[in-house]
């Protein structure tokens, strides 16, 4: 199931609905253009703490069907609500870090977990 669809049970009843209107203008992660403001939605698949001279940053890897991006939150080791499997809506400007776009302290929204996962 994609991230923006409705899932229907066998008798046609809608049993899971992804968030709608505030997901306007969301682009697939694979289509992120560096240095342009974008909105993407991805699932948190990995979280790493990056130490830097005594202060840590949290580097979160989010993925969708088209690619992966890194979201870095500076000066902290964890963020309430951001955990593996969580859907994150991220809005900000990414830079190219090798092959992976990287956001630094973007705006983020925690999306509800889907009722069912494919």
């Amino acid at each position: 199931m994609g991230l923006f669809s409705r899932k229907k049970s066998t008798n046609g009843e809608v049993i899971a609905v992804s968030p709608s209107c505030h997901l306007d203008d969301v682009v697939p992660i694979g289509e992120i253009v560096a240095r342009r403001r974008v909105r993407v939605v991805g699932e948190v698949v990995r979280m790493k703490t990056r130490p830097a001279q005594g202060v840590a940053s949290l580097a979160v890897r989010i993925e969708d069907e088209t690619g992966a991006a890194t979201v870095v939150f500076t000066g902290r080791r964890s963020i309430g609500g951001v955990s593996l499997g969580r859907l994150l809506l991220v809005e900000g400007v990414a830079m190219n870090r090798g092959d992976t776009p990287e956001f630094t302290n973007p705006e983020y929204t925690l999306l509800p977990r889907e009722a069912t996962k494919a």
């Binding site: 560096a34 240095r35 900000g92 400007v93 990414a94 830079m95 302290n105």
Partner: peptide
């Protein structure tokens, strides 16, 4: 520069 504009 880094956060809002991703200056390399």
């Amino acid at each position: 520069s880094k956060q809002e504009f991703a200056v390399p």
